[in-house]
Simulated scan of single mutants.
Amino acid sequence: MQNTPARAPDVVKSADRVLDLLELLGCATRPLGLAEVTDELGIPKSSALGLLRTLAARGYVERDAEDRYRLAHPFGREEGDWLGGLPRQVAAVGRPVIEALVARTGETVNLGAMVSGFMVRPLVQVASPQEIRYEPRAVDCPAYCTAMGRMLLAYMSTESVDLCLALPLRALTAATRTDPAAIRAQIALARRQGYAEIDGEFAEGGSGVAAPVFDRTGRAVAALNLASLTERWQRHRLDFIAAVTGAAAAVTARLGGRPPADAGRS
């Protein structure tokens, strides 16, 4: 799994951490505990606690009776709203690439990011123009059984993957992998290949591929996914994989990002 990438030389570390924390809380669908914040951001517990206390003192964050944190109103608005920042930027720069990919392949394309609870939240979805198509619902989806989720897990720490696979792993279809060892193998394969494939594990008759999108520090901040009917996927698999990996690289470039030095290696 990955090591924490170095930050760009023109980035102020303390300010970057504050923005990372605000974006994390802005994406969360529920209040987060200190341990969850520490794990998600990969920073020391003392640093996370100091940032949370400072933001709470300034009225940007609220702490509940169970010592969990969320954005204070009006910043959070409704629970689960996006704060903006990087997620909004990724969606904006990614949409033209997504639309071009849909035009090229004729299939549904999604851009998603990991949120709390190891769920993948859609940022952008452009549906296939074909009358008969696979169009996943634009809702939060579990990471363990989706192409986007496994791709993002491939760039998270071993501890994060352990936490994800310790959750209940429900079979959504007859093909869903629920054995943690089998899922770990798929996550490792995704890291080596640079893309993750799903064949009927999330929805019967639906298949697809996802590739990572990186920010300027080499962090995988989103995944680009093509969703197809299994029959069409089997006929065009290699073309679809090449199209998605190329499009994800284009979104990374538009974001000013770069893959980490060890991308494509286990």
Results as ranks from 00 to 15, higher is better:
66 E>G: 01
134 Y>K: 07
91 A>R: 13
15 A>D: 13
39 D>K: 01
68 R>V: 02
95 R>S: 11
23 E>R: 07
126 V>I: 09
64 D>C: 13
78 E>N: 07
62 E>T: 13
9 P>V: 15
126 V>M: 01
137 R>L: 15
76 G>S: 02
28 A>Q: 12
136 P>H: 05
98 I>A: 06
70 R>E: 08
74 P>N: 14
33 G>A: 01
103 A>I: 01
72 A>G: 15
104 R>M: 00
120 V>T: 07
113 A>T: 12
17 R>M: 09
38 T>W: 02
62 E>R: 15
76 G>Q: 05
37 V>M: 13
69 Y>G: 01
54 T>E: 10
102 V>M: 06
120 V>D: 01
132 I>N: 04
129 P>S: 11
61 V>W: 11
77 R>E: 11
66 E>I: 01
103 A>P: 00
40 E>Q: 12
57 A>P: 02
23 E>T: 14
143 A>W: 02
97 V>Q: 12
140 D>R: 13
145 C>A: 00
51 L>Q: 15
63 R>V: 15
10 D>A: 12
133 R>V: 02
11 V>Y: 05
140 D>P: 02
32 L>G: 11
66 E>R: 09
96 P>T: 12
69 Y>P: 08
10 D>G: 02
31 P>F: 14
21 L>S: 03
80 G>H: 04
111 L>N: 05
32 L>S: 03
9 P>R: 05
24 L>A: 09
97 V>G: 12
121 R>Y: 03
51 L>Y: 15
50 G>C: 10
125 Q>I: 06
127 A>G: 10
40 E>S: 15
93 V>R: 07
135 E>M: 01
11 V>S: 03
83 L>H: 04
9 P>F: 09
66 E>T: 08
70 R>K: 10
138 A>T: 14
141 C>I: 05
67 D>G: 02
119 M>F: 05
26 G>C: 12
144 Y>F: 04
90 V>E: 06
141 C>K: 14
137 R>A: 06
84 G>Y: 05
52 L>F: 05
72 A>S: 15
129 P>G: 13
28 A>T: 09
77 R>C: 06
43 I>A: 09
62 E>C: 03
11 V>M: 02
12 V>S: 11
96 P>C: 05
132 I>G: 01
11 V>C: 03
134 Y>V: 08
17 R>F: 08
70 R>T: 08
90 V>C: 04
10 D>S: 11
35 A>S: 12
10 D>E: 03
52 L>K: 08
41 L>I: 08
121 R>L: 02
89 Q>A: 07
138 A>Y: 03
109 V>P: 13
95 R>A: 14
44 P>D: 06
12 V>W: 04
74 P>M: 07
9 P>T: 01
63 R>Y: 08
120 V>Q: 05
18 V>G: 13
64 D>Q: 08
39 D>I: 00
100 A>Y: 01
144 Y>T: 00
76 G>E: 10
32 L>N: 12
119 M>T: 06
46 S>P: 05
98 I>C: 11
96 P>V: 08
93 V>W: 00
102 V>N: 03
101 L>H: 08
32 L>W: 04
77 R>Q: 13
26 G>P: 09
116 S>R: 07
107 E>K: 06
86 L>A: 03
50 G>H: 06
97 V>P: 07
91 A>Y: 04
30 R>M: 11
7 R>S: 03
48 A>S: 06
24 L>C: 08
65 A>C: 06
93 V>P: 00
